[in-house]
Amino acid sequence: MVPLQIIKGDATSPQAAGPKIIAHVSNDIGGWGKGFVIALSRRWPEPERAFRQWHRERAGNDFGLGATQLVPVAADLWVANMVGQRGIRTARSTGVPIRYPALERCLHALAGHAVRLKASVHMPRIGCGLAGGKWERVEPLIVTALCARDIPTVVYDRD
């Protein structure tokens, strides 16, 4: 098992050689416009475009909680759109949008992509921002799905 690395930096600028996947959590209502996705969209238009189309055409595909979409953005670089939250937080919301079982399914799918591509995985503290998750619940999911399969995984904390 490789250890989970947590470093200061920008998850949209992965610090590793070779193939890389940037992973993030998205919602199941097709919303894209707050949080980490803003940084992704500033660098590449493809993840947002693919996510919106995936949601728009959801009647004929696998879009929904627990689904993962891999989007190429450069040579040896992909973004994983992982549907791990139910809706979004609003002023009237009770509870949090993160759905840990869905995130767990996403992470296992992500691991399959990483193994196939021989890629390292890079992410912010997924599910712990707008999704409202607790890192002490998310970190073990990452370790089990990725690190236990010897997939180099780096979490970035912004400076």
Rank of each mutant, 00 (worst) to 15 (best):
W78L: 09
W78P: 12
W78R: 13
W78H: 15
W78I: 15
W78G: 04
V79H: 12
V79Q: 15
V79I: 15
V79P: 13
V79R: 14
A80P: 04
A80H: 13
A80E: 09
A80G: 10
N81H: 11
N81P: 10
M82T: 14
M82E: 07
V83Y: 01
V83G: 05
G84F: 00
G84V: 01
G84H: 02
Q85T: 04
Q85C: 04
Q85I: 02
Q85F: 07
R86K: 15
R86S: 14
R86D: 13
G87P: 05
G87L: 01
G87Q: 08
G87T: 10
G87V: 02
I88P: 03
I88L: 08
I88Y: 10
I88R: 10
R89A: 09
R89I: 12
R89Q: 06
T90D: 10
T90A: 03
T90P: 01
A91C: 07
A91L: 08
R92D: 07
R92T: 10
R92K: 05
R92C: 05
R92E: 15
S93C: 02
S93H: 06
S93D: 00
S93A: 09
S93V: 08
S93T: 05
S93K: 02
T94P: 00
T94H: 08
T94S: 10
T94A: 02
G95K: 08
G95C: 05
G95L: 05
V96Q: 14
V96M: 01
V96C: 08
V96F: 11
P97T: 15
P97M: 05
P97Q: 15
P97A: 12
P97F: 05
P97D: 14
I98T: 10
I98G: 01
I98Q: 00
I98S: 06
R99H: 14
R99V: 14
R99D: 15
Y100F: 06
Y100K: 04
Y100W: 01
P101R: 07
P101L: 04
P101C: 04
A102T: 07
A102F: 02
A102G: 04
L103P: 00
L103D: 00
E104A: 12
E104Y: 07
E104F: 03
R105A: 04
R105Q: 11
R105S: 10
R105L: 07
R105F: 03
C106R: 10
C106T: 13
L107T: 13
